[in-house]
Amino acid sequence: MKNVLLIALLVAGSFVAKAQHQASAHTLTVNVTDLKTESGAVYASLQDTNQKALQSQAAVVQKSNAQLVFQNVQPGTYAVRLFHDENNNKKMDTGLFGIPKEGWGVSNNVKASFGPPKFDAMLFTVNSDKSITIHIN
């Protein structure tokens, strides 16, 4: 009888922990501005502190802006990287030396200088529903 009661308590506890885990998830809204054209789509990646992509989103460009919404984001530290796929080929077009031909942006609007922006400078904290704005370079 003790084993049945113990198992029942463990199962009930796991359901409560799962419900609390989901309840703490947040929504991250990314507003993208300053797109150079009204064509194409914006592709974005939400990354953890190890630069691992956790979620990816795409949004159609509307009036030189786009909005991407990441759901079920757990409290923590993240970065967002995105690019404006102006020609709809679903990839970032680059030129000589890998320099982007299409617009791009990162969280905190970190600028590049002689290479990609520093990842640590892109990091921000999510501990509630959050909205950020990224300007296209």
Rank of each mutant, 00 (worst) to 15 (best):
G76E: 11
A66G: 11
D129R: 06
V80Q: 01
V106Q: 05
Y78C: 02
V16M: 03
H84W: 11
A79F: 08
A19N: 14
N50C: 00
A121N: 14
K36N: 11
S107I: 07
K111F: 09
A23R: 05
H21D: 09
S39C: 00
Q51F: 12
N109S: 12
I99T: 11
S45Y: 08
P116G: 15
H84Y: 11
K91Q: 15
E102H: 05
V126E: 01
V73M: 07
N88C: 01
S64D: 14
S107C: 12
N108R: 13
K18C: 07
Q71L: 11
A79N: 02
A59H: 08
S128E: 14
D34F: 01
A25Y: 07
H26W: 09
K63M: 06
E38P: 00
N87H: 10
K101E: 12
H26V: 09
A41V: 04
N127T: 03
D93V: 00
W104R: 04
D120F: 10
F119K: 03
T33F: 01
L82K: 06
D129I: 09
N89W: 09
L123D: 00
D120A: 15
A121I: 05
L5E: 11
V80N: 02
V11A: 14
T77N: 09
K63D: 15
G98I: 11
G76H: 14
L6C: 08
Q57P: 01
I7R: 06
L9G: 12
L68C: 10
N31Q: 14
N72G: 05
Y78L: 05
V30Y: 01
A17P: 03
T29G: 06
W104P: 04
T27V: 15
P116M: 08
N137A: 02
K2S: 08
N72S: 15
N137F: 03
G40M: 02
G98N: 04
K63P: 01
N108V: 13
N89V: 08
I99M: 13
K90T: 05
V61I: 12
E86W: 06
M1W: 06
G76F: 14
S113H: 12
F97D: 09
M122E: 03
Q55R: 12
T27Y: 08
N72H: 14
G95A: 10
S131L: 06
Q62S: 15
L96T: 12
F124E: 03
A17Y: 12
F15N: 05
I134L: 10
L82A: 07
V4N: 01
P100A: 08
L46E: 01
T37E: 13
V61S: 11
V4M: 10
E102F: 03
T133V: 15
L54Q: 12
N87M: 10
H26G: 07
I132H: 04
L10A: 15
K118L: 14
F83C: 04
L68D: 02
D93C: 00
A59L: 08
L96H: 09
F114C: 04
Q51Y: 11
A25F: 07
I136W: 04
N87D: 15
L68Q: 04
V60W: 01
N31S: 11
P75C: 15
I136H: 03
N31Y: 03
S113D: 15
S113K: 14
G105D: 02
S131G: 06
Q51M: 12
L96I: 13
G40F: 03
L82N: 03
A121R: 08
D48P: 04
A12P: 00
S56M: 10
G13M: 09
S64C: 02
